[in-house]
């Protein structure tokens, strides 16, 4: 297990907290919470040694969607594709007017 921490200078505020995903094998859960501080991403991952990959996946995501949020990720060995999918799903939830 490894804990990772990233900061991003993004400014699109989000309106509500959302949660998607499950900490199943090869999967992860993602939580976005509104914040008025700097965007923070805190990751707990079961696969050690992938800090650079996480950095790249997140950079690509925030380049495209510069949301300002407090983000928590619990990961159980998901691939970058799955990570990106869950992040995008969380965005969808934000738009959902339920």
């Amino acid at each position: 297990m490894e804990k990772l921490h990233f900061n991003f200078d993004t400014k699109d505020a989000i309106s509500k907290p959302v949660h998607v995903g499950v900490v199943a094998s090869g999967d992860l859960e993602v939580i976005f919470r509104p914040t008025d501080k700097e965007t923070e991403v805190n990751i707990v991952t079961g696969s050690d040694g992938f800090k650079e990959v996480w950095g790249n996946v997140l950079q690509r995501f925030f380049d495209r969607y510069p949301i300002q949020a407090d983000i928590e990720i619990n990961d159980f060995g998901s691939t970058p594709g799955v990570v990106n999918l869950r992040l995008t799903q969380a965005l969808e939830e934000l738009k959902d007017e339920k």
Binding site: M1, P17, H19, V22, V23, E29, I31, V44, G46, N74
Partner: peptide, 21 residues
Amino acid sequence: VGPLDNMISPHLEPQNIVPES
């Protein structure tokens, strides 16, 4: 008491196991 409520097991991380929210 859903995933946004921060009720996470305090016993998993000390054993290097990823918790769930």
